[in-house]
């Protein structure tokens, strides 16, 4: 009798519970429909994303490709402090040039802007890293007037 009365008086409370359960069920259905089937196969991401990344056009030719034609510059560079700076770090992405050197002739970098990206004086850089206050150091002269970029000795 008491139990029956309890059920009768609380019958209306079942309705918000049902709404909640229905919303959760709808969420689970939508979730299973939206999430790609292979999600989580390699980690917390969609494996198809890897294929999408692979479809991007290749911009950088890579060190080995550059050296195939420009071995003279590579030899000079290998002897100096820029030995471990890749060609395209300064010259920019040149995959198109490597594919068709005649059709895509790269522009030489603007040294006034390029060198100071790494060598501008900055308190945050290690003390033994070569750095200068460019405005005072060169008075506007291009860096390669004195320095040889591929092997930057004086």
């Amino acid at each position: 009798m008491v139990v029956r009365r309890l059920f009768r008086d609380s019958a209306h409370l079942v309705r918000p519970a049902l709404v909640l359960v229905a919303c959760m069920a709808l969420f689970l259905v939508v979730r299973s429909a939206i999430i790609p089937k292979a999600f989580g196969q390699y980690g917390h991401y969609r494996p198809g994303a890897l294929d999408l990344v692979r479809q991007h056009p290749i911009a950088f030719a890579g060190q080995d490709t550059c050296v195939m034609c420009h071995d003279d510059q590579a030899t000079v560079r290998a002897a100096g402090k820029h030995a471990h700076v890749a060609c395209e770090a300064c010259h920019g992405p040149l995959a198109q040039h490597a594919d068709d050197p005649a059709a895509h002739v790269p522009k030489l970098p603007d040294v006034a802007d390029l060198c100071r990206r790494c060598h501008e004086k900055d308190a945050a850089k290690p003390r033994n890293f070569p750095q200068v206050a460019t405005a005072e150091h060169s008075s506007g002269m291009a860096c390669n007037t004195c320095h040889q970029p591929h092997n930057p000795h004086l």
């Binding site: 008086d9 209306h12 409370l13």
Partner: peptide, 17 residues
């Protein structure tokens, strides 16, 4: 939500919940 039961007993239940 389709429930029109606002009897004193139902309201007491609302109070508790």
């Amino acid at each position: 939500l389709g429930s029109y039961d606002v009897s004193p007993a139902a309201r007491r239940m609302d109070e508790k919940v």
